[in-house]
Design a protein around this nucleic acid. Structure first.
Length: 1008
RNA sequence: GCCCGGAUGGCGGAAUUGGUAGACGCGUCAGACUCAAAAUCUGGUAUCAGCAAUGAUGUGCAGGUUCGAUUCCUGUUCCGGGCACCA
């Protein structure tokens, strides 16, 4: 009987569904200790319209294998799947095509689900959830309220309820709980002051403490998308999604006060298993630096300029100061003489957006006329302005030490500011040297000291003299938490008009006070809107919906119209899977205590600084507030590599005109003409010219297409590479028939071949629809399409092939050329059970497996496989495990072993990788239970003991021969044997033996 | 510019703490079966020289440490990823 994978896979998928084979139960109260838990999680997908391509399942297959493996190992395994269903693309699609996001998202999810099911994943679909479901985002909003009603207590180092803070304010003001953002106009107040503040002022002050807060600040504004983006959503000055320009804009926005967690997010990295690369990306993003804030008095003024530096040891090398163009002090210190110039410079910097600054890297600046006094020797130091100093970092001002900082050096050179050298010959006058190892010169009382030591001494000195203090800074900023979009979670906030008071000018919202909705008003549902378009003033589409906006009309109140960002729902979803149907809480604490942290989290590196940081922070907040018992969500992270697309190109003949030519050249070449790759290559390298191209065309087409082309050098020929759908290319050979069908224009195209074939060019690129290089494992619209991999080879083959491709973490271009080998392996396995030639009934006489007693040789093959596959699966080395399966089946075939006692454990080993065939053959062997829940085979090392070993014998480290040695031979016997060996004798000749190296179990080396 | 990661046959990739480089698969060549094809099976396949035994070379490049280096050290080139005026 032959291996009919389609029938088998369909059958078992249906059976598993009927028997709820993948349903995972939460333990009943008191039963938590019965079975150990294991939580395997995939990063849930954004259900895009393009559906699943072969890159998506890579991580899902890896995690599925691991989950199934852990299940066999006796764990109660949670392995859920869901959808990150809110987001920009669905909304963009709605604007462009008029299809409501709820509808397109639903369709996309259905497609994803169908595709995922056909690959045979062990997801518990009862726990499926989507972030756009009101029953889910009810709790996202609920967590928002917790964040809103909490502050970070720097004394206890955790989040606490804001009402506790209010109680403190009423008793003692904020002397011991200072405002995190020092720019707030009322930095310190007493209890009496607090109690005398009006409601608006109180709320404004509290807003400065809340973990989500509304602020008025510079944000990344994307005009094309009509929304604000978080820092990590902006790549090189353009939006991550869509690549539109991003500018800085001052807007009212909600923020997540993640900066308060900077230190804990950094420390937490030490206790979780993330790759070093991933940890480093996170710690770079957090960007901790330690140093000091130092106050410089301004000469002839009461003002002081506070700077931040990590190198207080270089203070005698300060040649000038630089402040950011936005710095407040400028108003007070700029001299009359320079006022005009400074104003002009500030205006200039306002016209420059982020992108220009990044791209141009030109040195600009302006002298203020003011001078600061070095606090140690009272030397006068000129104060400059430059855009290279950022207002948002440190104090927005620096002390410039050109001999040890490259940017300061360039600035000094550009403006001819004299440079003081404090590091002697370590400074060559050509470039700055940021060393810490130099011995200080020209440095007053620090002269002769090592810089490294001077840093410590200066930190102490600065604090002792009261001219500054130690300071730790972080690059990370608070994350923008509102989006002016429709398709997201509504923010559960109502604004109420504030009485106009003196303090009210501090109001972030301009003319309102933000009040949270009551818990029992959740979910605040996203209203259905027929037309989705941005409102004026940068407000989101929801503010067009007046009915909704003013709906709980208690007079002068209106709803917050922006929605939450994409990362809101994904920040806590791993918790919801634990208790997905709970309508009383986001997750029962008893249940989250049981499932606890995600043991293995599988996903791509692209979320290194976004999603992973945010969800780590949310977890810490929920932990601080006592809702869960762990403060890191993911114990171990496995990053799957990206599967890149392998693009194919055809080269179309086009005519181009020389620059400056006005003549119209439309319709000169009406017939599409395509050249095979080799000809394109030669043409590109100048080995073939225009004329020869034309000859080729005329020879091949029969038509005289080129008669019309004037050869007056005004026009010239070129070959344009055009992406061609990889699915109609076999390797590199174009399927011309299919290609002609792909576009009506191509129906009568001419092809200039090489060796009778049309060969395409290739490139490895990101897999994307526009590059026509996406390959789907299964087409949801046409599930019987023979050209898709799952239909052609089966899900089991597909799963094993994706694993066989190489290490999971590694990125690699998609290529189907090896898939036959994996498929052959499964057939070969099948043939250990059935004679494929005899096509009898399923229970019939074609079966060849037996119940004979196994031999030692067979046991050795089996146990070798158990050892290798268990080890490899445990450490995610799935590619080598697949190869171990192949070796095992090859060896059993060679031994003609079809014995149940050997094959049965092998099937268990295989079931995580190829569950369908394993379950089928398990059933074939007469088992009535499912293979999903049987115990993993136990390794018995005694079968692996070798009585002899073939040792490599080297002379002077060069391999010359090998020798079979009994495992129990003594060193002396071995030496004798080796030296008597003919090959060894030949190489030793009459030389004396200097050394005899014998490493047991490894090798033998004779040194002469 | 800075910080990570990588480079192994025609291809994807294997190689415990330094110990037989190239497992496994693809491709390819030869053969068996077949009227033929498919499927399957057998054998070869790093490079060079040789009929062969065998020898030489070989893990990006140049050195070094070692009895022995894909593995460790120094320098260097190329590729991939991250960050990018963070004082």
């Amino acid at each position: 009987m032959e291996y009919d994978f389609r029938k088998i896979e369909k059958f078992w998928q249906q059976r598993w569904k009927e028997t709820n084979a993948y349903k995972v139960d939460n333990p009943a109260p008191g039963e938590e200790k019965v079975k150990p838990k294991y939580y395997v999680l995939d990063m849930f997908p954004y259900p895009s319209g393009a559906g699943l391509h072969v890159g998506h399942p890579l991580g899902y297959i890896a995690s599925d294998i691991y989950a199934r493996y852990k299940r066999l190992k006796g764990f109660n395994v949670l392995h859920p799947m869901g959808y990150d269903a809110f987001g920009l693309p669905a909304e963009q699609y709605a604007i462009e095509h008029g299809i409501h996001p709820a509808i397109s998202t639903e369709q996309n999810i259905n497609n994803f689900r169908k595709q995922l099911e056909s690959i045979g994943f062990s997801f518990d679909w009862d726990r499926e959830m989507r972030t756009s479901d009101p029953m889910y985002y009810k709790w996202t909003q609920w967590i928002f309220l917790q964040l809103f009603q909490s502050f970070y207590n720097r004394k206890t180092n955790k989040a606490e309820l804001i009402k506790n803070l209010i109680a403190v304010f009423e008793q003692e003001g904020n002397v011991s709980y200072q405002i995190p953002n020092s720019q707030f106009p009322i930095p310190v107040f007493s209890a009496d002051e607090w109690n005398s503040f009006d409601e608006a002022s109180k709320q404004n002050i509290l807003m400065e403490y809340r973990l989500v807060y509304c602020g008025y600040g510079e944000v990344n504004w994307c005009e094309a998308l009509g929304t604000v983006l978080a820092n990590d959503e902006v790549i090189n000055g353009v939006s991550e999604r869509g690549g539109y320009p991003v500018t800085k804009k001052k807007l009212r926005q909600w923020y997540l006060r993640i900066t308060e967690y900077a230190e804990r997010l950094l420390e937490g990295l030490e206790n979780i298993e993330f790759s070093e690369a991933m940890k480093e990306m996170q710690s770079n993003w957090i960007g901790k630096s330690t140093g000091a804030e130092i106050n410089f008095r301004i000469s002839g003024s009461d003002e002081t300029l506070k700077v931040y530096t990590t190198r207080p040891d270089t203070i005698f090398g300060v040649d000038f100061m630089v402040v950011a163009p936005e710095h407040e002090i400028l108003k007070k210190i700029v001299t009359e003489k320079h006022a005009e110039e400074v104003a002009a410079y500030i205006d200039y910097t306002k016209t420059r957006n982020e992108r220009e600054r990044m791209a141009e890297k030109i040195i600009t600046g302006c002298f203020t006329g003011a001078a600061a006094l070095n606090p140690f020797d009272l030397r006068e130091i000129p104060v400059w302005i430059s855009e290279y100093v950022l207002a948002g970092y440190g104090t927005g001002a620096i002390m410039a030490v050109p001999c040890s900082d490259e940017r300061d050096f360039k600035f000094a050179k550009h403006f001819n500011i004299p440079i003081t050298n404090i590091i002697g010959d370590k400074f060559n006058g050509e470039e700055a040297n940021a060393t810490k190892d130099a011995e200080l010169e020209n440095s007053n009382f620090l002269t002769g000291m090592l810089m490294e030591d001077a840093i410590r001494i200066m930190l102490k000195e600065i604090e002792d003299l009261g001219i500054g203090k130690r300071k730790t800074n972080y690059k990370m900023r608070d994350a923008a938490f509102s989006r002016q979009r429709y398709w997201g979670e509504p923010i559960p906030i109502v604004w109420r008009t504030a009485r106009q008071t003196t303090e009210n000018k501090l109001t972030a919202g301009g003319n309102g006070i933000a009040y949270p909705l009551d818990e029992n008003e959740l979910p605040l549902e996203l209203p259905y809107m027929e037309e989705i378009k941005p409102a004026i003033n940068g407000e989101g589409p929801l503010s067009n919906n007046k009915e909704w906006l003013y709906s709980p009309s208690t007079g002068g109140s209106w709803r917050e119209a922006s929605t939450m960002p994409g990362y809101a729902g994904s920040s806590w979803y791993f918790l919801r899977y634990m208790d997905p149907h709970n309508d009383k809480e986001f997750c029962d604490k008893r249940i989250s205590d049981y499932w606890n942290q995600v043991d293995v989290y599988v996903g791509g590196t692209e979320h290194a600084v976004g999603h992973l940081l945010y969800s780590r922070m949310w977890t810490k907040v929920l932990y601080d507030l006592g809702y869960i018992s762990f403060d890191e969500p993911y114990k171990k992270l496995v990053n799957q590599g990206m599967i890149q697309g392998s693009s194919r190109f055809v080269y179309r003949l086009v005519m181009k005109k020389q620059e400056g030519v006005d003549e119209d050249l439309k319709e000169r070449i009406t017939t599409p003409i395509f050249f095979s790759f080799k000809i394109f290559d030669k043409f590109k390298n100048g080995e073939i010219n225009d004329e020869e191209l034309m000859i080729l065309v005329n020879e091949n087409s029969g038509d005289r297409i080129f008669d019309l082309i004037p050869r007056n050098k005004v026009f010239y020929l070129d070959l344009n590479p055009i992406h061609v759908d990889v699915n109609i290319v076999d390797g590199v050979e174009l399927n011309i028939k299919e290609f002609k069908k792909s576009k009506s224009e191509y129906a009568n195209a001419v092809f200039i071949l090489e060796d009778g074939k049309y060969i395409c060019g290739t490139a490895v690129e990101k897999m994307s629809k526009s590059k026509l290089n996406t390959v789907t494992p299964i087409d949801p619209a046409n599930p019987d399409n023979q050209d898709t991999i799952v239909v052609k080879y089966g899900a089991d083959t597909f799963r094993m092939y994706e694993m066989f491709l190489g290490p999971v973490e590694q990125s690699k271009p998609w290529d189907t050329k090896g898939i036959e080998g994996v498929h052959r392996f499964l057939r070969k396995l099948w043939r250990l059970f059935y004679d494929e030639q005899k096509n009898l009934s399923r229970q019939g006489g074609s079966k060849i497996w037996t119940e004979e007693k196994e031999t030692d040789a067979e046991l050795k093959v089996l146990h070798k496989a158990i050892k290798k596959i268990e080890e490899d699966t445990e450490c995610f080395s799935f590619n080598t495990a697949v190869s171990a399966f192949m070796i095992c089946v090859n060896e059993l075939t060679e031994l003609k072993c079809s014995k149940k006692e050997i094959l049965e454990p092998l099937l268990i080993l295989l079931s995580p990788y190829a569950p369908h065939i394993a379950e089928e053959l398990w059933n074939t062997l007469g088992n009535t239970n499912s293979i999903l829940d049987v115990p993993f085979p136990k390794l018995n090392e005694t079968y692996l003991v070798e009585t002899t070993k073939e040792y490599p014998i080297s002379i002077n480290g060069r391999l010359r021969t090998t020798m079979l040695v009994a495992s129990d031979a003594s060193d002396k016997e071995i030496k004798k044997m080796v030296l008597e060996n003919d090959v060894v004798k030949k190489w030793v000749n009459d030389k004396t033996i200097k050394k005899f190296i014998f490493i047991k179990g490894k090798m033998i080396n004779v040194v002469v």
